[in-house]
Amino acid sequence: MADTSETAAAPRTHVSLQVNGTTREVDIEPRRTLLSVLRDDLSLTGAKPGCEMGNCGACTVLLDGEAVYSCLTLAVECTGREITTIEGLSASGELDPVQQAFIAHDALQCGFCTPGQILAMKALFATNPHPDDETIERAMSGNICRCGAYPKILAAARALAGTQAAQQ
């Protein structure tokens, strides 16, 4: 994100963001992406910069509950929206069921893509508590895992969907 580093001369806009249930105030240039503001201004480094062109899914966050790429979202356009990052899933101190399923099914290796994977799955289960395999695969198709943990990610989702036993 070096090419979006701010200069003193560039005009800034005051933006109030709802992040993980808390109001956060930032003064930012309009060209700053939500990903860079989360990471560099708010120290929420769960969302990862991968391709930074909407190809990999590592930057996935929830906007009003829907999974989006924060690398292709301008932070100034997120006022009035509810932003959820991976840090927000365990704000109460307890891991989210999706996070627990990832641990139980060993659904990660290096972990770089995992915050995005978990949030994409979170968005799926918020609208469909019992997805079939095809629905799971489609919902997760915007998140690349270069370690190839896909079968275990699918197993985690099946466990949450309650379809694990039937399909094993």
């Binding site: 909407g54 999974a67 968005a123 489609r138 915007g142």
Partner: peptide, 12 residues
């Protein structure tokens, strides 16, 4: 549209 891009991009 269902095979266009990804769920995240289709939402945006």
């Amino acid at each position: 549209v269902r095979d266009a891009a990804t769920p995240q991009l289709r939402a945006m």
